[in-house]
């Protein structure tokens, strides 16, 4: 668990980068810090592994004040992924991934075994890539090495600073999907910084929206979308609102507003866990039938849109 209580960070030029922030990240949760450039999200992230020290307030990781732990010890227990991957160009892929286990003086066999396990999981076959240098890899592969390096010593906490920001849209989506399905992450407490709204909604268990050094709202994606705390939060999502709403809302959320009917043939079958957006996407090429709690219903465009409308006015 990570807990920030009334944390502020002043820089010499006088402006507060971070102003009286309180935030709790629960074990096993992915918390996304979202906001525009200069809103203080990266500063907040760096306060956690003490790349910066807070001017006031306390930061605790797993119940311990980070100021009481030597910075190097603290950092070795926290995985860190950077936007431009920050791989060591003079180290091979294997040497890069083994950095932290080596700093922790793990036995050599254990280190190599762990490294190869991670490489398999991240679709980087060791026999092919272990002795390559970073410049020989594609951008997506480099980012996966960066992720493997952060996970190598199996730290309970993972900090990610715009981890997919430097990738082209197609690669970004692929690496994101892989990241999401990685079993390693299910037990980790993750703080991820991004300015990409879609990414925040796709990956975040909860989102913390920041502006001008302050937290505007923290909550599950649906909460930010349907129960915004202030005008800033409301306006922030306006340009992509409909798509976000449809992606966030599951069919089961609007199940009772969909009329019951199940006749016909050649249907694509989905479950109530699918999002409204997925249902609409399928509808552009075929008929769709969804099952939820043992009942099946035919999904139509108007049924989904009506459901959304009803949900919002509830």
């Amino acid at each position: 668990m990570i807990q920030l209580s009334h944390v502020s960070k002043f820089f010499e030029k006088g402006k507060n980068a971070v102003d009286d922030i309180s935030l709790t990240v629960n074990d096993g949760e992915i918390m996304v810090l979202l906001g525009t450039s200069g809103c203080g999200k990266t500063t907040t992230l760096r306060l956690i592994n003490r790349l910066l020290d807070a001017s006031s307030g306390t930061v605790e990781v797993n119940g311990e004040n980070v100021r009481r732990i030597p910075a190097t010890t603290l950092r070795k227990s926290i995985g860190y992924v950077l936007q431009n991957n920050g791989l060591f160009p003079h180290y091979t892929v294997e040497e890069n991934i083994c950095t932290v286990p080596q700093l922790l003086n793990w036995p050599k066999e254990k280190t190599i075994a762990r490294c190869h396990t991670l490489m398999h999981k991240l679709k980087l076959p060791p026999e092919q890539y272990a002795h390559s240098y970073p410049h020989q890899l594609s951008g997506g592969q480099q980012q996966r090495v960066g992720l493997a390096r952060a996970l190598a010593a199996d730290p309970p906490v993972l900090l990610m600073d715009e981890p997919f920001g430097a990738l082209d849209p197609l690669t970004r989506d692929a690496v994101r999907q892989e990241f999401k399905s990685l079993d390693e992450l299910h037990t980790k407490t993750v703080v991820l910084v991004t300015h990409d709204i879609e990414e925040a909604f796709q990956l975040g268990d909860r989102i913390c929206l920041m502006n001008a050094g302050r937290i505007q709202q923290t909550g599950r994606p649906a909460e930010l979308l349907f129960r915004p705390a202030n005008d800033f939060v409301r306006n922030f999502f306006d340009r992509q609102r409909t798509q976000l709403e449809l992606s966030t809302l599951k069919l089961r959320d609007i199940w009772d507003t969909i009329p019951s009917s199940h006749n016909g043939e050649n249907y694509v079958e989905i479950t109530g866990d699918a999002s409204c957006w997925e249902a609409l996407s399928l509808l552009t090429s075929s008929h769709v039938i969804a099952t939820h709690n043992g009942t099946a219903k035919v999904i139509t465009g108007s049924a989904v849109m009506n459901g959304l409308q009803t949900y919002k006015t509830r």
């Binding site: 592994n49 790349l51 910075a71 190097t72 010890t73 603290l74 950092r75 070795k76 860190y80 950077l82 936007q83 431009n84 991957n85 920050g86 791989l87 060591f88 160009p89 950095t99 932290v100 700093l103 390096r149 900090l159």
Partner: peptide, 15 residues
Amino acid sequence: VDPAVTEAATGMGMS
């Protein structure tokens, strides 16, 4: 030296 690389090294916990 690329600042991203030194930051990564510090962030990994190197002295």
